[in-house]
Nucleic acid binder design. Structure first.
Lengths: 247, 247
DNA sequence: TGAGCCACTTGATCTGCGTCAAGGTTGATG
DNA sequence: CATCAACCTTGACGCAGATCAAGTGGCTCA
């Protein structure tokens, strides 16, 4: 597994893997401080990174791989409440415990900072707190957008919404951008998709088949998706918004 | 309408109406700067405070009354994504437009700061950005808790969850705290409850009747609710969490 | 080569909630 | 006091999606 250079991670928006908590505008001595408290952790697919309620001694960014945030009721019903893709930030400066399980769904590498020193640094470096505020506002927007999906959309619209989010998120990373046709690999099992969408895995499977039959998507194997026409997909999602920041 | 004194609003956690964006720890000159950019606005029940997409030139706190954040699809389906009760913060420092409609559901008074000067002040006063970050994390937790409600709970559980949230929120304000039996007035119509819960108003009405028949709640009129046993209500809500910060 | 497992698909049936429709209650207004 | 409009309740019925169940394809491992 190749680890990106510290330098690349210290950059922000203009870097393919944006370590968005910190920023190219940092002074050299700030970057130096970050270097000193930085380390890498990797997890295998299926491993739980943090259990709900546990203390979380670090904050960090996803370097590669996928993780999910999930909540579980006593009787086992689960709802995914967040999807962490590369460059996404994890952690809650100023908070003790984690409010939900964080689970690696693929092998994953994270770039972490020990929490205490990071918090001290945040207190001393105003623009880091402001940057985190902006990122948290983004997450809040995504969560609220998702509330509309969960509360008001049909199963077919839910699937189309999820595909559209993953496709767009993928496009923002890939070198050729948002070209039709879009091609990507689903990072989630049918069950994980169901947990994200408040559906059962059978319904997910049926709706995927229906979208395929209707030519909205093509499927090679179970995970490799081709979207011949993104506009069509977004219509199916009931999405008029021209691509708000979703996940 | 009696307006609270500026002094009360400038306090934070220990104040009954916590103007949580600022804080008792502010220096006198910071408070003075806040005074200079502060003003009050009131709206009538039903009035839209901000339309989705419009520029929002202020940030502020709810002083009295209730407002909702709602998202709407082209075909008219709507989902409430936030409920603003007294002391809640509205606004997105560093952002231009509003991502959803903000609607007054009762007559409402807000204490506002013009956005530009507030942002400047935030840049100059690190602890304000940190305080806003904490508040935004709270909102994010609430939104994610709500995703579980929307995605996985039954209609009956949804209603019980909403009642439990409002009751607890009410208790944290009222002088006698969370005593059983709890008594409060629903600040929402059946339709607004439905929009919050991803249900129809008929289903809300039916489930309210069912909870009443089963003795979980008592109703005088349509809005005045008595909860003889909060534990019972929280069981109905499927809530094991001992009262996380929800709305 | 075959056994076993996992992720997924597909079918049959059931049910919770939406939809449509008909009242009931309350409070404001002339 | 009558009228009207919100707001709410209740019933009958239908359907989207859950549930239960059987089967498929591809992978690993012996």
């Amino acid at each position: 597994m190749q680890i990106p250079t510290p330098h690349a991670l210290a950059k922000c928006d203009d870097c393919p893997i944006r370590h968005r908590a910190v920023c190219a505008r940092c002074e050299p001595n700030e970057l130096q401080s970050l270097e000193e408290i930085k380390y890498y952790r990797s997890f295998e697919a299926g491993q739980t990174i943090i259990w709900s309620g546990d203390k979380m001694g670090f904050v960090g960014s996803v370097v590669s791989g996928i993780a999910t945030l999930t909540q579980t009721m006593e009787d086992g019903r689960t709802q995914m409440v967040g999807l962490l893709l590369p460059s996404d930030f994890v952690g809650r400066p100023g908070r003790e415990g984690a409010p939900y399980d964080v689970v690696a769904t693929t092998d994953i590498v994270m770039c972490c900072f020990r929490k205490k020193p990071f918090e001290q640094m945040m207190a001393a470096t105003p623009h880091i707190a402001q940057r985190l505020l902006q990122m948290t506002l983004d997450e809040l927007d995504a969560a609220r957008e998702w509330m509309l999906v969960l509360g008001r959309k049909t199963a077919r619209e839910k699937i189309a919404s999820l595909l559209s989010i993953i496709a767009r998120r993928d496009a923002s990373v890939s070198p050729n951008g948002a070209q039709s046709p879009m091609v990507f690999d689903l990072p989630l099992t049918r069950e994980a998709m169901a947990d994200y969408l408040g559906l059962t895995l059978e319904t997910v499977s049926r709706q995927m088949s229906a979208l395929k039959k209707d030519g909205v998507i093509r499927l090679e194997g179970k995970r490799h998706v081709t979207v011949p026409d993104m506009c069509r997909l977004m219509e199916e999602a009931g999405d008029d918004s021209d691509g708000g920041f979703l996940v």
